[in-house]
């Protein structure tokens, strides 16, 4: 199991780093291919919109209700900036040959919001999510 590292690099951000045993194109597609979204968001997830370009929006119906946001920067396969729930999320995909390192930076409007989110177990949430993504990546590679 690859290690998930969670840090707070400054007053407004949370940074999560994780290596995946898959090519960069595959890892990038997990966040952008509408067919792969239900694979890790959970059974019954329906992608209603997935317009992957700057200013485009995404909208999923999940078990937990509607999840939606807007893409701000789209640079396949290395960088994605999107709004996600209460924060702005930057996803950077670094090519390590057979593997890919993901750096996910979550930027909040206030330190208070950042700290509240941190308090609810970002590490645990990220680890569980990344394990599901590992499974999706294994499936694509097969």
């Amino acid at each position: 199991m690859n290690t998930t590292t969670v840090t707070t690099p400054n007053e407004l951000e949370i940074r999560v780093e994780r290596v995946f045993d898959a090519s960069r194109a595959h890892v990038y597609s997990v966040w952008t291919d509408p067919e792969l979204i239900p694979e890790w968001w959970g059974d019954g997830t329906v992608v209603e919109e997935m317009d992957v370009r700057p200013g485009g929006t995404y909208r999923f119906q999940t078990e937990f209700g509607v999840v939606e946001g807007e893409f701000r920067e789209v640079e396949p396969p290395e960088r994605l900036v999107q709004t996600f729930q209460n924060h702005l999320q930057t996803l950077e995909f670094e090519d390590l040959g057979e593997r890919t390192k993901l750096t996910q930076t979550m930027r909040f409007e206030t330190t208070e919001e950042r700290d509240t989110t941190m308090q609810y177990g970002v590490e645990e949430g990220a680890k569980n999510g990344f394990e599901r993504i590992d499974a999706v990546l294994a499936k694509i590679a097969a």
């Binding site: 999840v67 729930q85 609810y120």
Partner: peptide
């Protein structure tokens, strides 16, 4: 009744929270 995401939104909270 409400979904988790409907409840999270007014607080600016994540689904996990």
């Amino acid at each position: 009744r409400a979904t988790i995401s409907e409840l999270a939104e007014p607080f600016g909270m994540t689904l996990t929270g």
